[in-house]
């Protein structure tokens, strides 16, 4: 395990496109700390900083930073297809890695990146929460932190799907396009086509995005204005209910498991010439 991870480390920490993309990811992520408060000044009635208070900050930032997981998936696609382009899967095989180890190597990397992303989110949320909350008690601060585990799954799920597509297509540009098309085109269109049917919630990318759902913004702002009037958000169709969280999470895990299984099958059969 450590050996495989070390090999990945030597490959990647010296690979500029990887360092740059990961750098962009890191900067984009932490830049939020500076940008959100700046944006706040231009919105008069409601204050964005309300979203940065414990315990809402966890839900809000998890939702906001979910698209960054797409970037992580693109990194995985980039480095996996690169191994095909450079024929380095072949080199690693002939010198004694097994095909299974080739897969484990990439999965380990995915785990490391997913943990890194989740820690980054956790630290960012904690920092903003500490800055903007009026009243901080341990209980309030720690409420909703379980969503971080769903963020971890989301991150992992995106990257394993990226890995599957990369192993299937092998070509960098085509793989990136396919993945992005699935995320920004195929899934929304299918969702729209199936809008009458419950099955729309079972689409693979949908279950992944629903791991980190839109927080109940209205409720958050209502808390601020102390309004007793309740608004039926579902009637406004602002907050689609979707599947129960446990079912949605199980489905996301199931799809991730399938992605790993098919990746395994592919890697066992591939010609690595």
């Amino acid at each position: 395990m450590r050996r495989l991870l070390h090999i990945e480390q030597v490959k990647l920490l010296n690979y500029n496109p990887f360092r740059i993309t990961l750098g962009i990811y890191f900067i984009a992520f932490t830049l939020g700390l500076l940008i959100y408060p700046a944006v706040d000044k231009e919105i008069p009635v409601i204050s964005l900083s309300d979203l940065f208070r414990f315990p809402d900050v966890w839900m809000f930032l998890t939702w906001v930073t979910e698209p960054y997981n797409v970037l992580l998936a693109l990194i995985i696609i980039m480095i996996t297809t690169k191994e095909f382009n450079n024929h380095t899967f072949k080199t690693q095989l002939i010198f004694g890695l097994s095909r299974t180890e080739l897969l484990i190597q990439k999965l380990l990397l995915i785990v490391v990146l997913a943990v890194f992303a989740t820690l980054l989110l956790g630290l960012t949320s904690l920092t903003l929460g500490l800055i903007y909350s009026y009243k901080i008690t341990f209980k309030i601060a720690m409420e909703n932190t379980l969503i971080l585990s769903r963020y971890l799954i989301s991150s992992f799920a995106y990257m394993t799907m990226g890995l599957l597509i990369a192993l299937l297509i092998k070509n960098t540009a085509l793989s990136l396009l396919t993945f992005l098309a699935m995320r920004v085109f195929v899934d929304p269109v299918l969702f729209l086509v199936l809008r009458e049917y419950e099955v729309k919630w079972y689409l693979p990318f949908r279950t992944t995005t629903r791991l980190t759902p839109v927080p109940n913004l209205i409720e958050i702002f209502q808390k601020k204005v102390n309004s007793s009037e309740t608004i039926d958000e579902t009637a406004l169709d602002l907050l689609p209910k979707g599947l129960p969280i446990w079912l949605n999470t199980s489905l996301a895990l199931l799809y991730t498991g399938l992605a790993i299984y098919f990746s395994y099958r592919l890697i066992q059969r591939r010609r690595f010439t």
Binding site: K11, Y15, N86, H87, T88, K90, T91, T273
Partner: peptide, 9 residues
């Protein structure tokens, strides 16, 4: 065939 290594290493 031809040897394949990481070009940037």
């Amino acid at each position: 065939e031809t040897p394949h290594f990481y070009p940037y290493l």
